[in-house]
Design a binder for these strands. Sequence first.
DNA 1: GTCTATAAAGAGATAGAC
DNA 2: GTCTATCTCTTTATAGAC
Lengths: 207, 207
Amino acid sequence: METRRDGRSTTTGARLQEEAARLFWRNGYAATSTRELADALGVQKASLYHHMDSKEQLLYGLCIDALRHIESAVQTAIAFEDDPLERLRALIRAHVGAMLHDKNKHATMLTEMRALSAERRDDVLAMRDRYQRLVLDVLSSAQEAGALRQDIAAELLSLGLLDLLNWAIFWFREDDALGPEELADTFSQMFLEGAARPTVLGPATPR
Amino acid sequence: METRRDGRSTTTGARLQEEAARLFWRNGYAATSTRELADALGVQKASLYHHMDSKEQLLYGLCIDALRHIESAVQTAIAFEDDPLERLRALIRAHVGAMLHDKNKHATMLTEMRALSAERRDDVLAMRDRYQRLVLDVLSSAQEAGALRQDIAAELLSLGLLDLLNWAIFWFREDDALGPEELADTFSQMFLEGAARPTVLGPATPR
DNA sequence: GTCTATAAAGAGATAGAC
DNA sequence: GTCTATCTCTTTATAGAC
């Protein structure tokens, strides 16, 4: 997607996707009419169809984009980390960063997948599953290296971690004192060390 | 809501709410037509209006019910627990149990609140906020009692905990080997002790 | 309490001029 | 690439008989 340095899209196609993400996330996909979409762009309804095939294909593109973005951000972030726990911390930072950087798109992907036709949904689900396997791999490797507890299955740890990370999108506010980086660090602490008071005898997480 | 021992609703009004929750969660509120709703009940569209004022009021009732249910379940569960950590574990068990016992209703409440009119949404949000204050109180008290770490704000701990608990609804499967109780216990461990390998010097969570 | 019939509005998408 | 005009379908909700 073409964007300028200030983050605003240039082409009408890109602006359309941007406005769609905003409206889909605010009002829901099904509740957003092509009329509202056109109004947001300052054009007539019919003009939209020069830039998209259908409303559903617009949602599909949004979901694919979001998943491509987060996967590549995380892949890049963990590429040069060797320590298992540092890899996990890098994953958390990249995941939270990517998600909050393009909140509307990621939130729409998370909540509106079911509005897609079976074929397109399968496509998106395949990408999501591939990303979740990446997360699972990082956790499994850390378990095998002895860095994570082994009495909880890696699958459950990954589902729990993704729940913790993904749904911050519902309550995170840009204007808050807490930025994405601080939030990611807090999540790393919560996930790794837990909420209980650390014992005085030794650190709960050896670094 | 009137239900028999086997969990199936008796009155048409109750059956309507049950089917609505199922369809709203499967297809989304806006994407569910009154026609589908009528088909699911085996009646004509017009007959629905003898049992509800409008589709939106049906959603409203669902949300209120879900929140009433989970709040009272948690209140009951923690009423006779004194130990701060046991109170928290009881809260987690009750929250997960209530949510998964009536999955459709709770999932709909969590995802479709934005479809409500401003007035009704404010109503539901007020109830949700009250419940979240209850969760926050349990965590704050545990912090003050020295049972939870104090370097992360109780507000953040509660948001993280609720994310962990609520969104299991997206991947929990009834037919899984893992039941609601086991899931709740695992969440308690993850949230309190963290995912990192416990140190050999002492337990991360003194009980 | 359920039905048939219908009103009234809004939806997604297309045709064809410019 | 955008417009006006329109097609076709579906939507929520109501009227009134039974």
